[in-house]
Design a protein around this nucleic acid. Structure first.
Lengths: 213, 213
DNA sequence: AATTGTGAAACACTTCACAGCC
DNA sequence: GGCTGTGAAGTGTTTCACAATT
């Protein structure tokens, strides 16, 4: 396949394209142009066509893209035909919100199991996701088919838990702890640093002194 | 000042440097090198020195950087001496988590007020942050000194609320709705798309077929 | 001896401009 | 005529390599 080498910047945009195609399909659209996609997503239309071109010729010149074809194409690329099982580590504020949050809505990803050390939480469940003792994590994850973990534990324990995750064959980690994780380079990590996002937003806001009023 | 033009990539890293300096200061370190910073953050040491150089010469050759100086420098740059007041729109799962979440810990940013349309929530407060009726948003935000908003409302209403935020002079928006916001270009928007992050993580994981095992 | 700060090179990503096809 | 797909140019970011400084 021409799956060869998708640039990271392109890979990060695929879910946005996919979501757009889902909406277009549900609202009965049959075709879309890169210009349509551009105005809905804010991504430049040339960038969109370039992104698509890494996968081969998906459109028709003078016509645009067939909604159903493209939807199915992205569904396949994003592996959204089969369920991806996820474990969540750390049922604090953020962890609880993510358990409630419906990742399922746009994608075939499900948090199947959660872990914490708080005896108040162990044994309970949130939105049907059972919470187990973090100390017994290995026992549950070994041979569970779970390859993806969401890390919402305090910074101090993040690295230690990551090492345990790697030992039970977790392949990808969505990390919310504001801490650089050291992992073998076959393990994929995406970091979401909420405090840093807010802080840099404020920084950039001050950089361009207000032009209105 | 030599504040001239900080590249976006550099600006996004400043909170990470700042957090490192806070930790270094608290643990009594007097000096750090770009190599120390690099191993703690995962950012290449040349990149760190290049980033710092946009602000002038902050270090001493053969020595490194003075922890206290650098800490104070970043505190000033990130405007962390004065409190930045924030409004939160949409007290659902994620909004609630962010109200509980302690942004204060690393930075001088505080969610002061929240809005929702659910009568169950209006009038209550979460962690001391009062929740008001979203319909009365303008009344509360006008002349409140609040310039930053966190948007955790459903996608369908995001654009409509953004227009109302712009009308009451909000300058920066941290957007969690998976929706492209159209704003005047003096308004700064940072998007955090949780479902897209998880989905692209899974995509990249599948790209590099597992090398271990 | 250690470590910064920075020209220059390399790399990554976006945008322009337009040929080609429907 | 409308729209894709892509070479080539432009822009932004990282990394190399090393002179300068303490």
């Amino acid at each position: 396949m021409e799956n060869a080498k998708i640039p990271p910047a392109t890979g990060r945009r695929l879910p946005i394209y996919y979501r757009f195609m889902q909406n277009a399909y549900e609202s009965g659209k049959l075709r879309v142009s890169s210009a349509d996609l551009s105005s809905a997503t804010g991504i430049d239309s040339t960038t969109i066509r370039r992104d698509f071109s890494y996968f081969g010729a998906l459109g028709k010149k003078g016509y645009g893209y067939d909604v159903q074809n493209l939807l199915l194409f992205f569904r396949k690329k994003l592996d959204d035909e089969k369920l991806t099982k996820v474990a969540l580590l750390g049922v604090g504020n953020l962890g609880t919100a993510l358990l409630n949050y419906n990742f399922n809505k746009n994608n075939n990803t499900r948090i199947d199991i959660a872990f914490d050390i708080d005896p108040e939480k162990i044994g309970k469940n949130i939105c049907g996701v059972p919470i187990f003792n973090l100390n017994e994590m290995e026992w549950h994850l070994k041979n569970s088919g779970i390859e993806v973990a969401i890390l919402t534990v305090p910074s101090k324990v993040a690295q230690e838990i990551v090492e345990r995750l790697v030992a039970v064959n977790i392949q990808a980690i969505l990390n919310f702890a504001p801490e650089h994780l050291k992992v073998p380079n076959n393990i994929r990590v995406h970091n979401i640093d909420l405090a840093a996002e807010l802080q840099s937003l404020v920084f950039f806001m001050k950089q361009y002194p207000m032009e209105n009023d």
